[in-house]
Design a protein around this nucleic acid. Structure first.
Length: 597
RNA sequence: GGUCUGGUAGUUCAGUUGGUUAGAAUGCCGGCCUGUCACGCCGGAGGUCGCGAGUUCGAGUCUCGUCCAGACCGCCA
């Protein structure tokens, strides 16, 4: 028997017991006459003691142990004379009788501790060592507990988890597909699912009126800290529901997770904020509502005073930074630099200091009188001591920039309480989105999203104004999930494809199976999918989803541990009737040979 | 596709105006140490300054290219 107990469970109540433990050597501290070894496993750390007087040979053997050796010991649980109350096992230690080295270890390239000295790159390359660290393990344990709670809760609500295929069909809408060549069907390819979208709708047609699945999805797009090429969704679909039934149902799931995992009770119903309002007030379709600082329109108060920048701008708005009237020139310059970064992309920033004394100091004093500025302050709800920050330009981009500036000020002023959770639903997204490059409309959510009946007539006059029965769950400025009520009849679906510029033939070829299914009694239905990795990251307090995933990929989509993707053998290519373009292959070769070992 | 930041000891980083032998901490190795738990003290080893060109009497430092990593924009729901 390798062990009678784990390294996390022994305490003062086990004193006197004879035990066997197995684990990794976290650290050993030799003191000449005696040696202490911290033995670690998944469950915790237990201190082992070796005494030179008691057993010199054994103690000398213990002193030779290196970090991360795997050992097995037997010994007696004893109360410590010097207790360490920082550890759950800190009141006891093991007086070791026998020591057996199960496996030695090379010196690890970084320290296996909560505060590791390893950088990201190294940690990813040796992920199996990184996963030994408590902080990382704890994230995976959180992820596991959340998955269990989700399954239990949804199962209790009569949802059934159904697996859907991974080798499916490429579709033209949405993200790029990962494709898989088919050996048995030369020249043809499967695609990996961007989500099980069509299958869950078919399950609704099949009468599984409440479906869910915790499922891997794949998108071949450029990555970010919160985006991986393969990621996990909590994919859900329900029949016989309208939008509000569905939002209520999944508020239930969200509240359950907050309660069971975080011990947080969310008493209020989640606000349902129209997309337009989110953009107008927060400059974002995923507003962080932990703090106010809403965007206020100033256009009408700025006109006709000879300030060309504002007069010629389509949009002039600002935010109020409470208590920041004493900002120095340097601080204001920093903010100006921030909004002028190419990623934000504005030409400049106008500030108005509403001084404690009631006077104004602004970068546009030349054009606007104190009375004018007072009107601005009134319109924006600014009080003496506050700083008004104003941007002008084209509506859409300037709103987004103000939204970014608002978040930056929120960070600077510590307005984002990491312990506060402000979930809300953003609703009424536009159904369609115009794309300048291809000169056509695209489905903003996806082509199966149901428009509002009362907006249907706009299809012909102003398709961009048609609102969709689509919604996102946003928590603290993070988009946690999104979904929609679906189209369930063939005519409307066809109309949608028409507006997306699909010919009948194309639509039939790509989605014929779904349209066909709709002819056989499709129930009204709708669904939602949550980004599981992001939800775990939110609960774990992480900005990146990488450490919620056991084996993540880097920002180029590479797994630096197994070094994938990689080229494949010529025979494999031939079997698949594939040929790699030579000039492309050269590029790959220089990239691979140039990589650090 | 683009912007920005970084790459120096096993690791995390510092390195001044371009100037003698490239430093610190930590880890590692050796010695001392019987109550440590971030143990302590003493000593030691450890460097292709990512790679390649260029400028210069002289490059870790300046220029160009390139590779790698990270963040962001585009992209993606």
């Amino acid at each position: 028997m390798y062990r009678t107990h784990t390294c996390g469970e022994l305490n003062i109540n086990h004193a006197g017991k004879n035990v066997t433990l197995s684990g990794w050597v976290q650290k050993s501290r030799g003191l000449g006459g005696m040696t202490f070894v911290d033995l670690r496993d998944r469950y915790g750390i237990t201190q082992l003691v070796f005494n030179m007087e008691k057993d010199g040979e054994l103690c000398r053997k213990a002193r030779k142990l290196g970090r991360e050796y795997v050992i097995q010991i037997t010994g007696n649980v004893a109360e410590r004379s010097n207790k360490n109350l920082k550890l759950p096992t800190g009141e006891i230690e093991i007086l070791v009788d026998t020591l057996h080295v199960l496996n030695s270890s090379e010196v690890p390239p970084f320290t296996i501790e909560t505060e590791t000295d390893g950088g990201d790159e190294l940690r990813m390359k040796y992920r199996y060592l990184d996963l030994r660290r408590q902080v990382i393990r704890k994230n995976l344990e959180l992820r596991h507990r959340m998955a269990m709670e989700i399954r239990n809760y949804l199962s209790g609500e009569n949802f059934i988890e159904v697996e859907t295929p991974v080798l499916i069909k490429s579709t033209p809408e949405g993200a790029r597909d990962f494709v898989v060549p088919s050996r048995m069907n030369p020249g043809q390819f499967y695609a990996l699912p961007q989500s099980p979208q069509t299958f869950k709708q078919l399950l609704m047609v099949a009468g599984f009126d409440k479906y869910f699945q915790i499922v891997k999805c794949f998108r071949d797009e450029d990555l970010r800290a919160d985006r991986q090429p393969e990621f996990t969704q909590i994919d859900c679909e329900m029949s016989f529901v309208d939008r509000d039934n569905l939002l209520d149902a999944f508020e239930g799931l969200s509240n359950h997770l907050f309660r069971s995992i975080m011990g947080v009770e969310i008493n209020d119903k989640y606000p349902r904020m129209p997309y337009d309002e989110a953009l107008r007030k927060f400059g974002s379709d995923k507003p962080d509502t932990r703090f106010g600082m809403e965007i206020k329109d100033l256009k009408e108060h700025t006109e006709g005073k000879g300030f060309q920048v504002f007069d010629s701008a389509e949009y002039v708005s600002g935010i109020v930074a409470t208590g920041c009237a004493d900002y120095s020139r340097k601080q204001l310059d920093e903010l100006t630099d921030y909004v002028k970064k190419p990623q934000i992309g504005t030409r400049g920033l106008v500030y108005v200091k509403y001084n404690e004394a009631g006077t104004f100091k602004s970068s546009v004093d030349k054009f606007y009188s104190p009375d004018d500025l007072q009107k601005w302050a009134d319109a924006m709800g600014a009080a003496p001591g506050d700083l008004m920050l104003i941007l002008a330009g084209e509506t859409e981009s300037t709103r987004k920039a103000l939204g970014e500036l608002r978040l930056e000020m929120g960070r600077k002023l510590n307005l984002m309480d990491p312990k506060a959770y402000r979930p809300l639903w953003v609703v009424d997204f536009p159904l369609l989105e115009w794309d300048e490059e291809t000169n056509r409309y695209y489905a903003m959510h996806h082509p199966f999203t149901r428009p509002y009946e009362e907006d249907l007539e706009l299809f012909d006059s102003d398709p961009g104004k048609v609102r969709a029965k689509a919604y996102d769950l946003v928590i603290n400025g993070v988009e946690i999930g999104g979904g929609s009520i679906r189209i369930h009849n063939e005519d409307l679906q066809q109309k949608m494809f028409d507006n997306l510029g699909f010919t009948r033939e194309e639509a039939a070829k790509q989605f014929g199976f779904l349209m066909g299914a709709f002819r056989y009694g499709a129930p009204p239905h709708g669904g939602i999918a949550f980004g599981f990795d992001r939800w775990v990251a939110l609960f774990a307090g992480l900005d990146s989803i990488r450490d919620t995933i056991a084996f993540p990929k880097n920002n180029a989509g590479r797994d630096v541990m197994i070094d994938s993707p990689s080229s494949i053998a010529e025979e494999q290519l031939e079997e698949l009737f594939l040929e790699v373009k030579k000039e492309e292959l050269k590029k790959i070769e220089t990239r691979t040979s140039g990589r650090k070992q």
